[in-house]
């Protein structure tokens, strides 16, 4: 149906977004110490309510920095920056200029 350049661009964006989410979930799996698998949580699920401690959130922050080669500035070092997969993705989009 719609197979123009615009559609291609959108499909690439969707693909990149899925890749970013996979990488965020991989970091969460390694560092968030959640009692159940991160794959069971949807994008907007509250990670603190799911069992992530403040200390674990620091590890998640450092893991995200390593995975995406970024450094979180002071204004993003807030509890709500790391409260869900969607929130982390939004912070990364801000950092990466997405």
């Amino acid at each position: 149906m719609s197979s123009g350049p615009g559609a291609d661009h959108r499909s690439i964006e969707v693909e990149e977004m899925a890749d970013v989410e996979d990488r965020i979930r991989m970091v969460l799996g390694a560092h968030a110490r959640l009692p159940r698998g991160v794959e069971e949580l949807d994008d907007t699920a509250d990670l603190y309510a799911a069992g992530m401690t403040s200390h674990a959130s620091v590890n998640v922050m450092l893991g995200i920095e390593d995975e995406f080669d970024v450094e979180f500035p002071e204004h993003l070092l807030r509890k709500d920056t790391f409260e869900s997969v969607a929130a982390i993705r939004a912070a990364l989009e801000e950092l990466l200029g997405g």
Binding site: H31, R33, H55, A56, V58, N59, M61, L62, G63, D66
Partner: peptide, 21 residues
């Protein structure tokens, strides 16, 4: 705080972890 969690963080991130906290 579980000491093991801090030890694991030091092992994983070293001085970056220590300086952030």
């Amino acid at each position: 705080v579980a000491v093991e969690e801090v030890a694991a963080s030091l092992a994983a991130f070293g001085d970056r972890y220590a300086r952030r906290l």
